[in-house]
């Protein structure tokens, strides 16, 4: 894993230290995570790139919302799995709302949900199938956010994305647990 010492830029190292230590939360990140505007929009020339990253994440979040809706309406999920699915869908809705709002704050146009998603419905025959399908999406989401975090020009957006990553990782672990699998099989995600 990378170390604070491996970061050449002392200012970046300080910001990362503060972010990891929980000693402080930057004003822009607070604004972003709280859904306020203004501060998060000051990313300069990298704004278009950041909008593109956010929109890709938003597209995946919108698909996840639709996937959980499919699972909830399938009739295959029983309590408490059904409750989990609806709770996690609610988280994805919150992520999507925040991402869309941030895209607009940065002057971009937020992507919309597709009118139809091509989910492999024919493979979902049991509760375990639905949970496994959801777990796969959540695992992918963890990796996708991990791959996006270092790309943002605005590091406050990186922090916000990392916050979502943590939530997706919890979803993945709980779904694995519900499937009877080791919920946390590895020390590092990739």
């Amino acid at each position: 894993m990378s170390s604070f010492l491996a970061i050449a830029d002392p200012q970046a190292a300080r910001r990362l230290f503060l972010a990891r230590s929980g000693l402080a939360l930057s004003g822009a990140a607070v604004a972003l995570l709280a859904g306020r505007d203004a501060l998060a929009a000051k990313s300069g020339a990298t704004r278009a790139d950041d909008v593109r990253i956010l929109n890709t994440a938003l597209g995946a979040e919108l698909e996840a919302i639709a996937a959980y809706q499919l699972g909830a309406e399938s009739g295959l999920l029983q309590k408490p799995a059904l409750g989990l699915a609806l709770q996690f869908q609610g988280h994805h809705k919150e992520h999507a709302d925040l991402l869309a709002k941030t895209v607009r704050q940065l002057g971009g146009k937020a992507v919309s949900a597709k009118s139809k998603y091509g989910f492999p419905v024919h493979t979902l025959k049991t509760q375990a199938d639905v949970l496994r399908f959801a777990a796969k999406l959540e695992q992918g989401a963890v990796s996708a956010y991990l791959g996006a975090v270092p790309l943002f020009g605005n590091r406050d957006l990186s922090k916000a994305a990392a916050s979502i990553l943590g939530d997706e990782a919890m979803h993945w672990a709980i779904l694995r647990n519900a499937l009877g699998e080791d919920p946390v099989p590895i020390a590092f995600v990739s």
Partner: peptide, 15 residues
């Protein structure tokens, strides 16, 4: 390939 599963599938288009 599981890392790609937020956006890709083999047989159908996603993100």
């Amino acid at each position: 390939y599981a890392r790609c599963a937020a956006c890709h599938a083999l047989a159908y288009d996603r993100v």
